[in-house]
Nucleic acid binder design. Structure first.
Lengths: 125, 125
DNA sequence: GGAACCAATTACCTCAAGGTAACTAATGGG
DNA sequence: CCCATTAGTTACCTTGAGGTAATTGGTTCC
């Protein structure tokens, strides 16, 4: 059994780059965030919590995550129809990294904005 | 002193969303990765380590990171010219979250690819 | 007999991120 | 005289992610 060559996102053709890009897609971190506790959520409910996402893009992003094995999709043929999405064990392992990234953005917002103002003032001068 | 309203990336107009998007720009995690040890690197050196990035986009991304206060740019008027980039203390606080994300991508690559094959086989059927 | 409900799908459009290629300034080296 | 070097800039183009709006289907509610 040969050892796999180590994946390395710095390498031009390493497929781990696409994995990283999926993980950092515009809406993926937000969807992981609302599913983070492991409980299933319905399509409509996700759409409400992730403010501003369109149904088309939500469907696309959920499909992509399902394909990568991050979540499961369970359709119930009830009336009205019901579809539940739930993170898989693999998906749950992304929760902590994504949570850290999200918290960084939320907690350093003011500092970043202050830096921008300083920079823009310098450049204008 | 009024308390700041808590930032929340799930809110449509919360400016923390743009901070998160910057952090997850196509090249930002890779640039943070090569600067992660805190040592300054020259433009050319970054360009070589982050395989495939064009000089234009590297300049743009570095400028954006400098504006947000993640790194400093130090130009030396020597010949040939020399410009060093180095993570700031703020930038260094992104290293761990980004490292976790990168490691996830690299370490779960095979599992993700296996899931994709399974999914595509099912959908084709 | 229409409206509401849910989870989409479809067709279409837009825009900005990113890519490509050529060019610049300043100077030392052959 | 011309090339190499470094860190870009400029003009231009492409692409694909994402947005918008309308539509579907089956059933119950009014």
């Amino acid at each position: 059994m040969p050892l796999e060559p180590a994946a390395n996102v710095l390498s031009q053709n390493c497929p781990s780059r696409t994995v990283l890009r999926h993980l950092t897609d515009r809406w993926t971190p937000l969807i992981v965030t609302v599913l983070a506790n492991g409980q299933p959520l319905r399509f409509k409910s996700i759409k409400e919590k992730v403010e501003g996402i369109s149904p088309k893009v939500l469907t696309e992003t959920l499909r992509s995550m399902e394909r990568d094995g991050l979540l499961t999709r369970t359709a119930t043929a009830s009336l009205p129809p019901r579809v539940d999405y739930q993170l898989t064990p693999l998906g749950l392992t992304t929760v902590e990294p994504i949570r850290a990234l999200r918290l960084w953005a939320e907690n350093h917002l003011e500092e970043v904005e202050a830096n921008r103002q300083r920079y823009d003032a310098l450049v204008a001068a």
